[in-house]
Simulated assay, not measured.
Amino acid sequence: MKVENHIIPGDDQISAMMNDPGPSGPIVMVNLLKFRDKAKYADGSNPHMSGRDAYALYGAGVVPLVAKHGGRMIFSGPTTFLMLGMVEDLWDQVALVEYPTRKALFEMSSSPEYQAIHHHRDAGLEGQLNIETTPDFMISG
């Protein structure tokens, strides 16, 4: 299995997301996050900030946007141990985010509010995997 972390989706992935409505109900995005040691802002600002801290600025802004588009943050936390399997380099954090539809995710990530905070995500991430799942069942809470 080949695994490649990326920061933004490729053209094929964006096209598929835009042109395929996806599942008819909710989706949960599994985010496997790898942070830069030091944030890397395009304008050179904040050279001493960690990637994790830059991503935390993005996270503080994106959680209300997710809610505005009908979604919710289910879980976010650091990885602490690999219990099964083997990878060369473990991701730093895992986040689970529920959206009512794939379209809601696309609309949120295309919004001006999202574009205004996206630079913190880019500065903080070395790469990530985003995996769309459809729940067999949901535990409310």
Rank of each mutant, 00 (worst) to 15 (best):
V3C: 06
N5I: 05
G10P: 03
Q13V: 13
A16P: 01
M17K: 04
P21I: 03
P21K: 10
P21Y: 07
P21D: 13
P21T: 10
P23R: 06
S24P: 10
V28E: 09
N31W: 12
F35M: 05
F35I: 01
R36W: 01
R36P: 00
D37R: 13
Y41E: 07
A42P: 04
G44A: 09
N46K: 09
H48R: 09
R52I: 02
D53P: 04
Y55H: 12
Y55K: 03
Y58D: 04
A60V: 11
A60Y: 09
V62S: 02
V62A: 05
V63R: 06
P64E: 10
L65R: 00
V66A: 07
A67V: 14
A67D: 13
H69A: 09
G70N: 10
M73Q: 11
F75C: 09
F75D: 01
F75G: 02
T79F: 04
T80Q: 13
L82M: 15
L82K: 11
M86I: 04
M86S: 15
V87N: 06
L90Q: 14
W91I: 01
W91Q: 00
V94I: 15
L96M: 12
E98A: 11
M108D: 03
M108C: 14
S109T: 15
S109L: 08
S110A: 14
S110I: 07
S111K: 10
S111V: 07
Y114H: 12
Q115G: 04
A116R: 08
A123M: 01
N130F: 02
E132P: 08
E132K: 11
T133E: 01
I139M: 13
S140D: 15
